[in-house]
Write a protein that binds this DNA or RNA. Structure first.
Length: 387
DNA sequence: TTCCAGGCTT
DNA sequence: AAGCCTGGAA
């Protein structure tokens, strides 16, 4: 058994003793006296979570499929953004088998606007793997869960603890913040040593809550998401503020240290709207690593904003008047986008082109940029007939 | 206008 | 270590 750096060897042992109170004629267990620091923390966190945890849709089920969908959506995405997508997604794909049967474009369409579209591909691929290799039953073995595409250390731990009640730790951004504050971890929280320390701490805590590992993990995440915020944490409301070393040191806002972002790159692009019979021409992106397989309005290549013929992939066209200007950011790219009408000089060919009504565009797999473009068009700029 | 949170993959 | 996306806060 690995030595836990937090706990002196003689402190290892049962988590606590029951304390009985006699009230009237009955004996009532009112709680356990924690024997270890972890047990004390776990007990406070669990009590707080049960009283103050938010009522979220995926907390009303233990269906592995539903919890899995929520966890993948919650990767790099806030609860507020996820909730409507989660409901819609499960409306369209109510079961793992339904998801596995669905064509990928339908899955991507349900994901449109949520970002990080690789997650949707992974989810879909993993559903098919589960049907094929696990008879449609979500695996409960850590190695099998971890082997699914799109399931890393965090997501595996979340699923195993929440759905299968296993004592597996989780460290997401919220947990990392909570733990680095509780244990006053100065220095770069993203370094390898810090990460291992965080996972060790999380493991120690989840093992101190053997009856409710999933709730313990969710309590840590909930605390980070609600009270233990990056800025202005609400320590007076925190169930473990008394045990927080960062707070004792007055350093809660300084921990963990901020990540230095990659310098943004400014780019200019021109998107073209080609209208025909009330529809716009759209094209499906190829595999570039960026919004793979999503539909978009054709972009002019390079610096072709001026007059005359221009090229967009295998398309030749003539840009016309500008109808909108907007900004869009993708990771470190800051795009300044001009939207221009255009006239075709060559006919689009193949499955990667479609003529789409504005309503139809909102049903295709597409990034938020498409919605942004459609929303930026002035009234009366809807597609019109053009000879 | 800028900054930021937020896991997985390669 | 770098890249992926978006919405909301500062």
């Amino acid at each position: 058994m690995p030595v836990d750096p937090l706990v002196p060897a003689h402190r290892h042992g049962p988590a606590g003793n029951g304390v009985a109170l006699l009230i009237g004629h009955g004996a009532i267990i009112i709680g356990a006296v924690p024997k270890t620091p972890e047990a004390a923390l776990a007990r406070s966190l669990l009590a707080w979570y049960r009283r103050h945890g938010r009522d979220l849709p995926w907390r009303r089920t233990r269906d592995p499929y539903r919890v899995w969908v929520s966890e993948v959506m919650l990767q790099q995405t806030t609860v507020r953004a996820v909730v409507p997508y989660y409901r819609r997604f499960l409306g369209r794909f109510p079961t793992l088998r339904a998801l596995a049967r669905a064509p990928l474009p339908r899955v991507l369409a349900a994901w449109s606007g949520l970002g990080y579209y690789r997650r949707a591909r992974h989810l879909h691929a993993a559903a098919r793997i589960i049907v094929k290799d696990h008879a449609g039953r979500f695996p409960s073995r850590p190695d099998q869960v971890r082997a699914l595409p799109g399931v890393g250390r965090y997501t595996a731990g979340a699923l195993l603890s929440i759905v299968f009640g296993r004592q597996e730790p989780v460290v997401d951004g919220n947990v990392a913040r909570v733990l680095s504050r509780l244990f006053l971890m100065r220095g770069d929280a993203r370094g390898r040593a810090s990460q291992e320390r965080l996972w060790d701490l999380a493991r120690g805590l989840v093992r101190a809550a053997p009856a409710d590992p999933g709730d313990l993990n969710q309590a840590l995440m909930e605390l980070g998401a609600t009270l233990c915020s990056p800025l202005a944490p609400r320590c007076p409301l925190c169930p473990v503020a008394r045990r927080c070393r960062a707070r004792a040191a007055g350093a809660q806002e300084a921990i963990p240290g901020r990540r230095r972002a990659r310098a943004p790159v400014d780019l200019a692009a021109t998107l073209v709207l080609v209208a025909r019979r009330g529809r716009f021409l759209m094209r499906r992106r190829r595999r570039t690593g960026l919004m793979d397989g999503l539909w978009e309005f054709p972009a002019l290549e390079g610096d072709q904003g001026g007059a005359g013929a221009a090229v967009s992939g295998d398309l030749r066209l003539e840009p016309l008047e500008r109808v909108a200007t907007l900004r869009h950011t993708i990771t470190y790219r800051r795009l300044r986008i001009e939207v221009r009408r255009a006239r075709l000089l060559s006919e689009p060919r193949g499955r990667d082109y479609r003529w789409v009504s504005p309503a139809g565009a909102r049903r295709l797999p597409a990034s938020s940029l498409v919605a942004k473009v459609l929303g930026s068009l002035p009234p009366g700029q809807a597609p019109r007939h053009r000879v």
